[in-house]
Design a protein around this nucleic acid. Structure first.
Lengths: 341, 341
DNA sequence: ACCTACAACCCAATCGATTGGGTAAGCATC
DNA sequence: GATGCTTACCCAATCGATTGGGTTGTAGGT
């Protein structure tokens, strides 16, 4: 009757069974099946004895062993460009939460948006026998996705979409439109877009939403005013530099498809002696926690990152259950702040 | 001789063995042991045949099965306050890289610095049978750590240290001293500290390093000028507000133990009509990628976050190998920028 | 001719949980 | 009292890899 038997590493089903003088399989059924199979497998009295013993012996089933038998690991693999990208980090938090609620654990890996890494990381995940993948770094020319489909690997996309595959994303087109409406209504007529990476649907959709709406409002956007760039601060800075030097009448507003790029752009503007908000309006995207806290508060399209992550998990669960799923787009809202007010 | 036999899910050792007419155990020995055990287990010719077949059948061992037998999962569990904290995200990138190089995979979980969550997440990790833990959210009153030690769970700390346990951290004391030297030499004599959370060694050490050095330089720091706060932008803003209202002769310099708190403080200063760099110098800590890209570039203590993560993995490996390990502190450097120049 | 040594394998148990198929006892029904 | 139906279990195979202990066959030594 000691605290815990020091010799034994962990308690197994067999330990419990021996102690109660019943068969491991009975214990398994009692503990495993939520009282559906349990009744018919054991008497209520026995079931209670087993559950209690399990509780105070601190029994926890070995997922290795269970997985070996059932061919399911209850593991979801998550691939993101980089976790140090705040947007993906938050989506991942949503993913991890929702997965935990369904009894799954998650693996994350960074692909740095490099196709070779994507493939490598995918293979590692599959070698770990994940039940399915949540892919946050999909490129629009989805070679890898085709391959995964062919190999019958269950997966869904998150953050970025690729037509034809299930995904949980922000409605990026709408987001771009919101910004166009906002800047137009503020009287801006000469604008530029820091468009992000052309292989990412986020960048393409936000830009397209903005540009199309802008034109349908009667505005004009020259080619030069749409600058593709990296998503980080340095990328935004460079893009803004390029806009400032090449766009002849200087734009009075910038739309960056990403908050970090927007912050970089704000830096560039300041280096040119321009004041953000007065001389040039800036609007970002995602409404990361920084946006509202910057010295000059940044207008940004709020995207429900946590929910996007959670939704991705739901979708993957449906896929794993063999159901058919459609892409989901969650609605963004515009937060107007100092930088464009 | 088809591309791959469509019916079979995955290739197993037995498949390979059958195909070559030898025993699975022989195949295992050939594939497993790096030519030490391999010789003696099979002829070079056989070994080559096995290796080749494994290669083009795309064999990858099932870690579930292997782990079940060997009692090792080659999994490291990582617990952080939150991955959306850029600092931890980057350390995690280092951890994941280094772990992959050693043939380990990693699990991350967020504890939100909540003791109950820490315990829960630890339990989940252990239930997943990780080989060891890397703990990034250790609190100075390490109750959980004692418990883990008692349960003989191998672990190391990262980012934050707790005396008596192995850890990989930045030399935070030195970091604080660097800032003190810098501000003192710039002629500041009236300073305040945004000190972070008192349960985190990072906060305590950086603050102590700064304050002690400041006093040994002959400076004075009143109680009120050291404000404990959350690590995020909002926390920094609040702390700065408190300093601006309560410190009678307004300080000419602020040291925030974290870049995000520093950014929040910059926002507060601006709201008070003070110019960062001219009226009040601000220095942050960690030199996150934002620091150099902000509109007003932020001076910050650069800490080698990636290396800290990598080091933690090395330490845990040593612990797993039964070796004794000492805490490691990596050296920070000061990056002086606009905000304090 | 006999023994030893080594090379090159094979055998079978094992890890812990799951699961399809029993079986024995007890009761009711015809 | 034979049959059928529950109830409450037990049995044994199985998942895939690992590993301590064999077994065979051949070469070399004396």
């Amino acid at each position: 009757m000691e605290e815990s038997r020091a010799g034994d590493r962990t308690v197994t089903l067999k330990d419990l069974a021996n102690e109660l003088g019943i068969h491991p399989s009975t214990v398994s059924r009692i503990l495993h099946s939520g009282s559906e199979v349990a009744r018919g497998a054991a008497s209520l009295a026995t079931a209670e004895r087993v559950r209690e013993l399990a509780r105070n012996r601190g029994y926890s089933p070995d997922p290795q062993a269970a997985g070996l038998r059932t061919r399911r690991t209850r593991l979801m693999g998550v691939i993101v460009p980089r976790l140090s990208d705040l947007v993906l980090a938050i989506m991942y938090e949503g993913i991890d939460e929702a997965a935990a609620e369904l009894g799954y654990s998650t693996f994350v890996m960074n692909s740095r948006d490099d196709p070779e890494e994507q493939r490598r990381k995918t293979d590692i995940m599959l070698a770990r026998r994940v039940d399915g993948l949540i892919i946050g770094d999909a490129h629009l020319d989805g070679g890898l996705l085709q391959e995964l489909t062919a190999r019958k690997v269950p997966f869904v996309l998150v953050n970025r979409r690729v037509p034809g595959y299930p995904s949980a994303t922000c409605d990026d087109l709408l987001g771009g439109e919101l910004v166009a409406d906002h800047l137009w209504s503020k009287g801006h007529r000469n604008v530029a877009v820091i468009a992000g990476e052309p292989y990412a649907s986020t960048a393409v959709d936000r830009t397209a939403g903005f540009v199309d709406r802008w034109r349908s409002l009667g505005g004009k956007i020259p080619r030069k005013a749409v600058v593709w760039s990296r998503f980080d601060t340095a990328g935004g800075r460079e893009a803004a530099e390029s806009i400032l030097t090449h766009c002849k009448p200087r734009p009075t507003a910038l739309f960056a498809v990403n908050d970090f790029a927007a912050i970089g752009a704000m830096g560039a503007l300041r280096s040119h002696g321009l004041s953000v908000g007065d001389d040039v309006a800036v609007v970002g995207f995602n409404d990361t926690s920084l946006a509202a806290e910057l010295p000059i508060q940044l207008s940004s399209v709020h995207s429900p990152m946590l929910d996007i992550g959670r939704t991705a998990v739901q979708l993957l669960k449906h896929v794993l259950d063999g159901e058919h799923v459609e892409p989901v787009r969650l609605e963004p809202t515009l937060c107007v702040r100092e930088s464009s007010a």
